[in-house]
């Protein structure tokens, strides 16, 4: 898979194999239920704040939009040209947010940062680790080349 900056200030993700497409399509499934993130953030707030009632629905909607947008962009790219997924500059925050949701979800599910050695880890855990590293690389590129911030 190649990921290169475009002249328009975005990124072009160029999958080369079926496995590359599958990794991209896994972003949405790694996110799972976007509501979970909204609820876990609400857990940080005092119960009296009514955060669950007043804020979580908006957050959930926002996270759902990010997830659905990225899922549709990947599906469309595969269906229409089968060569590249283009991330336009004005869509970068949605992409970053969706990928971040996927990484937060993986961390919550597998505690990846608590694992010291992936060599002998179960296949599922190693796979989650490699997806997390791939997502991290995409986030770094988005920050550096599209969102104007370097890590």
């Amino acid at each position: 898979m190649n990921v290169i900056p475009t002249l328009e200030g975005g990124l072009s993700i160029q999958p080369e194999t079926e496995a590359d497409w599958m990794v991209l399509e896994t972003i949405a499934s790694d996110i799972g239920r976007p509501a979970h993130l909204a609820e876990s953030l609400a857990d940080l707030m005092d119960k009296e704040s009514d955060w669950e009632e007043l804020v979580v629905p908006d957050l959930e909607q926002n996270f759902n939009v990010q997830c659905r947008f990225v899922q549709a962009a990947i599906e469309d790219a595969r269906k229409n040209n089968g060569q590249a997924v283009f991330i336009k500059a004005h869509d970068a925050e949605k992409w970053y947010g969706a990928i971040n949701q996927a990484r937060l979800s993986l961390q919550a599910r597998y505690d990846l940062h608590g694992v010291e050695d992936f060599e002998d880890a179960p296949a599922e855990l190693r796979s989650a680790h490699f997806r997390d590293r791939f997502y991290l690389t995409l986030q770094g590129l988005l920050l550096e080349y599209v969102m104007g911030e370097s890590e």
Binding site: Y96, N100, L104, L143, M147, E149, E151
Partner: peptide, 10 residues
């Protein structure tokens, strides 16, 4: 452990 330092700053 997930959010990048550059992102938090942004």
């Amino acid at each position: 452990p997930v959010n990048l330092m550059g992102y938090v700053t942004m």
